[in-house]
Simulated assay, not measured.
Amino acid sequence: MTKRKRVVVLMSGRGSNMEALMAACGEPDYPAEIVGVVANRAEAKGLETARRAGIATAAVPHRDFADRAAHEAAVSAAIAEFEPDLICLAGYMRILSAGFVRQWNGRMINIHPSLLPAFPGLHTHRRAIETGCRIHGCTVHFVTEVMDEGPIIAQAAVPVLADDTDDALSQRVLVAEHQLYPLALALVAAGSARVEDGRVVHEGAVQPQAGVARLVSPPGWREAVDLEKLARMTP
């Protein structure tokens, strides 16, 4: 297998999606490894989780800086120390400036709790219920200068039940997030998901059957990525 891609995770809180990525990266044939975790809150529980796993961490509290530009410069410096190939936003609760996004263009991905382009921004589960959606879910996408509008890498759908509450739907979507993010990162790290003309093109991944509509959980990344094929393709 080719050399694994170096990943830095940006997060703000408990880091459940980070833990899902950590578990996937623990597999010897996974095409990425987490080399650092950066948080904008020193008390973020995910930092301790990462430290216990032997992963280097950096806390860059935004309240310690006069403005967003100064804070983002410090975050970028912390990221650069780890020499990453990719950056994963995993519950990073800061709006990123266009300048920051341009600095890491094409190397930063995010998970959002809706089926984009539906419901960008906050309160996605409540909005899905109030709108009367029958299908909800989550999306992993490349980060661009426009919030929650980057090229879509992968999505997972869950049903919206008649008696759903925000919390119940949120928990069901979170289970899907923990499956989807490792899959999407594997696709990008292995080189089978790339951006062409503003859209993500997949190579070596299992494609859905034409004309078939069904609810599915995201497949495991091994089923979605032909690692032997990718090893021959990737320099």
Rank of each mutant, 00 (worst) to 15 (best):
Glu177Val: 02
Met233Asn: 12
Met18Arg: 00
Leu96Ser: 05
Val9Lys: 02
Asp29Gln: 14
Asp148Lys: 04
Val75Pro: 02
Ile153Ala: 03
Leu116Glu: 01
Val35Cys: 13
Asn17Ser: 02
Pro208Asp: 09
Gly46His: 04
Pro159Asp: 08
Asn17Gln: 01
Val101Glu: 06
Ala224Met: 15
Arg102Thr: 15
Gly13Leu: 09
Leu180Thr: 05
Gly191Glu: 10
Pro219Ile: 09
Ile87Phe: 06
Arg194Ser: 14
Glu27Tyr: 07
Val140His: 03
Pro151Arg: 05
Ala98Lys: 09
Glu130Lys: 07
Ala154Thr: 03
Met22Gly: 04
Gly13His: 13
Cys138Ile: 02
Ser170Gln: 12
Ala66Trp: 10
Pro31His: 03
Val188Cys: 04
Ala56Ile: 13
Phe142Tyr: 15
Pro235Leu: 15
Ala23Arg: 09
Pro208Glu: 11
Pro120Gln: 07
Ser16Asn: 06
Gly26Lys: 01
Ala24Cys: 08
Pro235Arg: 15
Pro61Arg: 07
Gly198Asp: 05
Asn40Ser: 10
Ala186His: 04
Glu196Ala: 13
Val206Lys: 10
Arg102Tyr: 08
Ala186Gly: 15
Ile87Cys: 06
Ser114Thr: 09
Asn105Gly: 07
Val175Met: 07
Ile129Leu: 14
Leu169Phe: 05
Ala39Thr: 11
Ala80Gly: 09
Glu48Tyr: 12
Thr165Asn: 09
Ser76Tyr: 02
Ala59Val: 14
Pro84Trp: 01
Arg51Ile: 09
Ala58Gly: 12
Val140Met: 03
Cys138Tyr: 00
Arg214Val: 14
Met18Asp: 01
His71Leu: 11
Phe142Ala: 04
Glu33Leu: 14
Gly211Tyr: 13
Thr234Arg: 12
Leu10Glu: 00
Leu180Gly: 00
Met1Leu: 11
Ala162Ser: 12
Val140Lys: 03
Cys138Asn: 05
His136Thr: 11
Ala231His: 12
Arg127Tyr: 08
Thr234Ala: 13
Ala44Cys: 13
Ala184Val: 01
Cys133His: 10
Tyr30Gln: 09
Asp29Met: 15
Gly36Tyr: 01
Ala32Tyr: 04
Asp67Glu: 08
Ser76Phe: 04
Ile153Asn: 02
Gly91Tyr: 00
Ile109Arg: 00
Ala59Thr: 14
